[in-house]
Design a binder for these strands. Structure first.
Lengths: 201, 201
DNA sequence: CAGGATCAGTAATTGCAATTACGGATCATC
DNA sequence: GATGATCCGTAATTGCAATTACTGATCCTG
């Protein structure tokens, strides 16, 4: 099979795996059910991914990277750093509380090896936080822009993520997400001085 | 067997269950391993708890209540509300990032029924947040003290919990916890006006 | 068009853990 | 001290899912 074909095939398999993970959880997602849903054979799954953890490792990696790339793109579309943050916040809430990311986090929580958690942390937070820190470094006076990011994320998300992961909350809708993000940014601006040139006109 | 004896026996079983959960996770904690560790028989486990989820439900309930009671006690020991919060913050960080609570959260994340998550949310947050809200209502001018609590928890914990649960972080030590709590309270006081009478002497 | 590789579909194989069943010891109660 | 209940320890039973093996079908490559 050609490389291109295989790549799209793998994407299909990983998509099917994620769908089953969202619906049934890690333990109840069997290799057989993945094969059936993806129209692939067990032999192929094992040849390509080695074993069940291997499949999920690849799936998590691919999906987290995909989500990251979407977020990266949207952030780059702005010149004014705080305007970018303002746009970014609600998206970040939406992504991090989505069924998909919640399911990925649950899988990571159940993974004794810690591989899934490492992937999520490195690819997810590891690439998102620096972007935010860059934006804040351009907009806010602080010797430690990374800490501004910390505070912002705390204000933005609170314990939304952990509550979602243990299953005690629906995802916030778009209106709530925007409100929450606006409040977080407003509080952040009261906590840290904004460069005068960056004040809104 | 007398009531008292049975109660202590159940406590032993639940303690052993938690220890195994912390060490191996939910999936790898077998009923047989619990029986062995607790020196109980499988028959007793099934007679008392019905099935594996039942055992874990009871265990989570008992342990969360125990943790809550410890926190409740410490908070009641103060007269000045913000002093109580100041003392409470580091403890809350320590408890919520402890191996035990992380393991309980992981079990809840893996539980498809949502029972464990419900227990944790209701017994845990459901009793802690109102206590904090009471303290803030006495110390801070706000039409919505519950939201002050929200903000405080966000500043205090950030994404510590979710990062702990997916396995990408050691628990913060006592010094870090206190620093973090102090910073959170200090930021909170800049965000919300404190009643003059409550200002420190 | 032959040859070899790759894949889907299905049928073993295997191991593990939840659950059940049973025999002997222990303990509270009368 | 008898007795019935309760408990421990261990040995089935059972079901499920990961993993492996086998059989044609399909698709590139020359």
């Amino acid at each position: 099979m050609r490389q291109e074909t295989r790549k799209t095939r793998q994407k299909e398999i990983q998509r099917a795996t994620l769908a089953l993970l969202v619906q049934h959880g890690y333990a109840a997602t069997t290799m057989a059910s993945v094969a059936k849903a993806a129209g692939a054979s067990l032999e192929t799954l094992y040849k390509w991914y080695g074993d069940k953890p291997g499949l999920f490792r690849a799936m998590v990696q691919a999906n987290i990277e995909e989500l990251r790339d979407e977020l990266v793109m949207s952030a780059a579309a702005f010149r004014d750093p705080l305007a970018a943050v303002q746009e970014f916040g609600p998206q970040l809430i939406a992504v991090l509380t989505s069924e998909e990311v919640v399911a990925l986090n649950r899988a990571a929580a159940a993974d004794p090896s810690g591989d899934l958690g490492r992937i999520i942390a490195e690819v997810g937070r590891g690439s998102i936080a620096p972007q935010l820190t860059d934006l804040f470094a351009r907009a806010i006076e602080s010797e430690d822009p990374a800490q501004v990011t910390e505070v912002y994320l705390g204000l933005l998300l609170g314990d939304l993520q952990i509550r979602r992961v243990i299953g005690r909350m629906p995802p916030p809708d778009a209106v709530e997400a925007r409100q929450r993000a606006d409040r977080a940014l407003e509080m952040l601006r009261r906590l840290f001085p904004v460069y005068p040139s960056k004040l809104p006109a």
